[in-house]
Design a protein around this nucleic acid. Sequence first.
DNA 1: ATGTCGTGTTAAACACGA
Length: 259
Amino acid sequence: MMKIASWNVNSIRQRQQHVLDWLEREKPDLLGLQEIKCESAAFPAEAFREAGYDSVVVGQKSYNGVAILSRLPFEVTTRGLPFLDDEDPQARYVEVRAAGLVFGNLYLPNGNSGGSVGYAAKLAFMEALALHARALLDAGTDFILAGDYNVCPTDEDCAPGALPPTDALLRPETRAAFRRLVWLGLTDAMRALHPHGRHYTFWDYQAGAWPRDSGLRIDHALLSPRVAERLLAAQPDRDERGRAQPSDHVPLIVTIEDP
DNA sequence: ATGTCGTGTTAAACACGA
């Protein structure tokens, strides 16, 4: 059995102890982190190593930043999203191979800042991700693409009134791009096991979103076909949002059986 | 639209992103 998780921690320096406590409780094999908000050298790799996890970090100053923690041996396969022509590359993708599986960890652009240019960058990232997924499928690779997609795929993934209809997380073009990705033949792990219901992974800090349960399902794990056949469980760890000084996202946990 | 966070510049607020 293999346990793989994704968590937007909204600053690893603020959330280091949360992550250490969570690793000890949940003991995932792989954990993808997003929004670490620090340069690679500032990532607390040694603290995680002492907890039994080696890491690969793609950081940048102030914003974004992704990392993967692993208690399995791994090799880094890429530190940026292939197929993305970007004159100002941001730290939004890192990928490893472990236990015969490629694990891609992504932080997709939010798309609400920077006007039409910012939104276009979101769609460009999604197109590049689809091209990369297509290449992995063509190569017959078993893979999981997990992370903060910043996409509410359907109305059921957005609490009523949580977002205006023009928000970049649920615009029709955003949802269409997400469907194109899934329709390559990937499986949304949560929806495969829980076709309906509100399984939020994010609650805004503002406007009492958490106590009102005004959340969003925007963190996802997409599985290649053979991995989907091994899927045993998928769930967000809601409890994490109720702790002191939480991230606005909670971990998403996917469990698959051994091949 | 925003009641909150986090980072950073810069000197107690402000800008920006989410």
